[in-house]
Amino acid sequence: MFERLGAPSRWSLALLFPIALLLVAFMPIGATALWVAALLLTLALPVGLMRRHALSALIVVLVSGAVFVPAVHNMFAGRAMLIPLLVLADIMVGNVAASTSRWRSIPAALVTVAVQMALAAVDNPTGLVTVWTVELLAVVTAWLIGNSVRQRRQYAVAQRAEAEVRAVQAERLRIARELHDMIAHSIGVISVQAGMGRRVIDTQPAEARNALAAIEETSRDTAAALRRMLGTLRRNDVESGPAAREPAPGLGDLESLIARTEKAGLRVGLLRSGTPASLPADIDLSAFRIVQEAMTNVIRHAGTDRCDVVIEQDDQELTIEVTDGGRGGAGLSDHGYGIAGMRERVSLLGGDFSAGPRASGGFRVHARIPLPGAGA
């Protein structure tokens, strides 16, 4: 109700509070229900300031009490209104503690205790120790509750900020993985084709032209993919909704990936077994990137012209294995971005990953990814 009022209206109602208190005090108490309703309406007048002007609302209540109690302390109505007035001040103290810093709320609570003790001394000079103790405990309790609310709000804000930071970091890592996997594979293909073209350009011009054509096609595809990714990053969330984004690659794109890889001189044997079914987007993309990165490592480090890719899928898990008969990972650091990126992808999906030389020679990349619903 008070939020719909403008600031001048809220201040006007609050400043009418001491006048309304005096009017209620001099009302006849014969009609008890009417008198109580008037009292409650009067106590609600400064509430309009509580949300945006907590400290000001408390000052209005304290000043009004300081004026009101000495004026009517000998009247029955005045004494009957004292306790509700003290409770309202305690509520205001809790509101100040919940909405302002401690260096403001603590002095406000101390001033409130002092004013309440002074009013109690004016209204009832006897038994002050008990009254003062009750008033002190009430103010302290109100301040502790308000301070607890403020701390919970601050904690919630800190949690939201931390969650946003984690989300940004996770998105940066995801983008870094995507860029690494895409560019490393393309550069590997281009490097092999360029080296082959340079060696045969004088003796086999046709093969050199084929190598240059493969370099051109790979470069064009990579540039287009980079433009799509950077364009998506530049658009805001509203403009780049799910319908506006380019579809992410998956295991269904392995054939085209293998075709591009074979142009670099690497023959790939693909074997898929089990019961292929639609995979969640994150698993499908990760599986594609693992195969892509493993083949890139073969091109760059294995020193062989062949590798084998085995994809097995059932209702429980997806298994990926890429093997070659090359140098067993010589020159390939386990701490490089490729191996680390594959391991991180599988770890995020709750699977197992291993990569290393085979006892029979060559290198083996193995990933096992559990599928949603497995074990349910």
Rank of each mutant, 00 (worst) to 15 (best):
L254R: 03
G241D: 15
N297T: 00
S354C: 05
L371R: 12
V60W: 02
R228D: 13
F288Y: 15
V149N: 01
A208T: 04
V291I: 11
L21P: 00
S240K: 06
D253G: 04
A156T: 12
G231F: 06
M81D: 01
L49E: 03
D221G: 09
V111L: 15
I299Y: 00
L318V: 02
A340S: 11
I29M: 12
A121E: 09
I175Y: 08
S12F: 14
F17T: 02
E239G: 14
A161E: 07
A281R: 04
S105F: 10
G356Y: 11
L40Y: 10
R245N: 09
A158Q: 12
G356N: 06
F68N: 00
S347Y: 03
A89L: 03
V322E: 01
G65W: 00
F17H: 14
S360G: 10
F2N: 07
G250Q: 08
I175G: 00
L270M: 05
L349Q: 01
V238L: 10
H335I: 03
V113M: 15
S240C: 09
E255W: 13
I19Q: 08
F288V: 12
A243D: 09
T130E: 15
S101H: 10
R160M: 10
R228K: 09
R300H: 08
R327G: 14
V134C: 03
Q169D: 07
L179P: 00
E246M: 08
I290F: 04
M295W: 01
F68M: 00
P372L: 10
T126L: 11
P28S: 09
L136H: 02
G188C: 10
P242S: 14
G265T: 07
L58R: 02
T141K: 08
V310D: 04
H366E: 02
N95Y: 08
A33M: 09
L136Y: 02
N74M: 12
T222Y: 04
S105V: 06
R260E: 06
E3H: 14
G48P: 07
R51W: 06
G146N: 01
S9Q: 14
I190N: 05
L34K: 05
V134R: 10
I91S: 13
R227P: 00
P276M: 02
L39D: 02
T130M: 13
V129M: 11
H335T: 08
E312L: 09
V168W: 08
M50F: 14
L173Y: 10
D90R: 05
L271C: 11
A66N: 02
A37K: 06
P280R: 03
E344S: 10
Q316L: 03
V134W: 03
H185A: 10
